[in-house]
């Protein structure tokens, strides 16, 4: 079932087109990979869904979440959907958590705001979430600060924060790029499991086709603000229709030998 439908999305920044007509359909329980080199507009696509584009950006087309066009919402209505219906995980876990607020505080403030939970209920739910993203000793982790966790653990906390209000859509912008390879695999497995268990629709933005091939159900490839190809993972990886996709695939080290 399609939860989030992006149709004919365009974004202009300072009069310069960044995204020139993108169509994407995110299904619940699916990981939709969005690939492309830096500057291709994939991150901007993710930010457009959350309404967090840089100041002065102009958008066109529609982004429809369960029948509502997000682009036509007032800032206040959009803010109500942020965090509660759409969650986002950012690239750099070392900067995306506030260094002076405890993990628990950052896990619970939007829960209390969106879900109206009291302090105790929010804490219970936060500890449960920390367990769900496989943080050891979730009770103790609640009161610790970001600098007391490793990079992989911080990204797990960021994922728990994004999922705290049970959103239907999760946007993960290069969630593993800043992590060691061994840690990457754990985070990807976690994203995959959460997607299956919670019926989440995940938009996984990455430049790394290796990451993509590990978890994505559907792969879209972007170049210069346009989609060049969309299809099931197996088909795109094995038999790319677009020459640009083939170039990207050929650049993967383990695919150079047939």
């Amino acid at each position: 079932m399609t939860i989030l439908a992006i149709e004919g999305l365009t974004v202009e920044l300072g009069g310069r087109p960044i995204i020139r007509g993108v169509d994407l359909a995110l299904e619940s329980g699916n990981v939709h990979g969005l690939a492309g080199e830096s500057g291709s507009g994939k991150t901007m696509t993710g930010l457009a869904v959350l309404g967090l584009l840089p100041h002065g950006a102009r958008t066109g087309g529609t982004i429809s979440l369960g029948g509502t066009d997000l682009l036509s919402l007032s800032p206040k209505e959009m803010n109500r959907r942020r965090g509660s219906e759409i969650g986002m995980v950012f690239q750099d876990q070392s900067t995306s958590l506030h260094p002076m607020l405890s993990a628990g505080r950052q896990l619970t403030d939007h829960m209390r705001h969106h879900l109206g939970l009291d302090r105790r209920r929010a804490r219970e739910r936060a500890v449960e979430l920390l367990g769900k993203v496989r943080i050891p000793d979730p009770e103790g982790a609640f009161d610790r600060y970001p600098h007391q966790f490793s990079g992989g653990m911080r990204q797990r906390i960021a994922i728990a924060i994004a999922l705290a209000c049970e959103p239907r859509v999760l946007i993960a912008d290069e969630p593993t790029t800043a992590l060691d390879v061994t840690v990457q695999a754990g985070i990807l497995r976690l994203l995959r499991d959460l997607c299956d268990d919670l019926g989440l629709a995940v938009l996984l933005v990455t430049h790394d086709l290796g990451v993509m091939s590990a978890v994505a159900d559907v792969i879209s490839v972007m170049r210069d603000g346009r989609l060049v190809e969309t299809g099931p993972r197996a088909r795109v990886m094995r038999d790319p229709a677009d020459p640009y996709t083939r170039e990207l695939l050929d650049a993967l080290p383990d695919r150079s030998t047939p």
Binding site: T95, S96, D109, H113
Partner: peptide, 16 residues
């Protein structure tokens, strides 16, 4: 900073 953008992505009111 990223963490301010992340806080906005959580849908917290601007005042908070």
């Amino acid at each position: 900073q990223d963490y301010v953008r992340a806080a906005r992505a959580k849908g917290l009111p601007g005042r908070v």
